[in-house]
């Protein structure tokens, strides 16, 4: 079942067209990887899925992005509600300068949850989901900024999960991490798939091959191939895909 349907999406930064007529269906509870060389439009595309590009001056977007049946660019929608449903994890972990507890409780509090016991439950459950609970449970008052890079990224994932999104967008979530932290993030992504739909931008093709169910290759703003990951990395249908994944360009 498709949770995201993108139809003929075009995006312009002023006169420059960064996305050209992209149509793609993203399946529920699957991991979809977006790959392609720098500047190909994959992060721009990802940011379209929760209207993060709205904040950039001169951006013009045409086409449809339908999430859970709602056209997020045409229907009257609440942006805060959209971003609650479609969480985002960035390349560089960005914990708030506050305690681990408060980082995770931040979203639920904004959404009106004040009960201490309920917040404690949410924080514990979410930190468990983010595979961080065992490492931080003894000192939740510690600053989120004092954690290691990998732990900070998992804290950010926990913060995103705390508001119970359906979809999580990840923009190179492990590119600044060491191999062990990367493995933990990848294991976590795989675990999260049971309950969430994940769209991940990655420069690391091995990572895309390891974690995702489907992969989309972008090149110069165009969607070159969207295929089952196994197929795309073993017998791609498009010559450009073959050349890109074999390191012949990009």
């Amino acid at each position: 079942m498709n949770i995201i349907e993108v139809k003929n999406l075009n995006l312009f930064y002023g006169k420059f067209q960064a996305l050209k007529d992209i149509s793609i269906d993203i399946k529920m509870n699957k991991i979809t990887a977006l790959i392609g060389p720098s500047g190909c439009g994959k992060s721009t595309f990802l940011r379209c899925l929760n209207r993060m590009n709205d904040l950039i001056n001169g951006v013009k977007i045409k086409g449809d992005v339908i999430i859970d049946g709602k056209n997020i660019y045409k229907d009257r929608i609440d942006i805060v509600e959209l971003r609650k449903n479609v969480g985002m994890i960035f390349q560089k972990s960005n914990p708030f300068p506050m305690s681990i507890f408060d980082n995770v409780a931040y979203g639920p509090r904004i959404n009106g949850i004040r009960d201490k016991k309920q917040l404690e439950e949410i924080v514990e459950n979410t930190l468990r989901k983010a595979a961080l609970w065992e490492e931080v449970k003894d000192d939740l008052k510690k600053s989120g900024m004092s954690l290691s890079g990998g732990q900070q990224q998992r804290l950010c994932i926990a913060r995103a999960l705390a508001v119970e999104p359906k979809i999580i967008l990840m923009d190179e979530p492990a590119s600044a991490l060491d191999p062990i932290s990367t493995t933990k993030i990848e294991d976590l992504i795989f675990e999260l798939k049971k309950n969430y739909t994940i769209v991940i931008v990655t420069h690391n093709m091995q990572q895309a091959a390891r974690v995702s169910d489907e992969t989309a290759l972008f090149y110069m703003g165009e969607l070159i191939e969207f295929n089952e990951t196994k197929k795309l990395f073993t017998a791609p249908e498009n010559e450009k895909t073959e050349a890109y994944i074999s390191g012949k360009f990009g």
């Binding site: 091959a209 990395f233 017998a235 895909t241 073959e242 074999s246």
Partner: peptide, 9 residues
């Protein structure tokens, strides 16, 4: 090199 596609085959 961890090749893919035709290179892997």
């Amino acid at each position: 090199f961890q090749p893919f596609a035709a290179d892997l085959r």
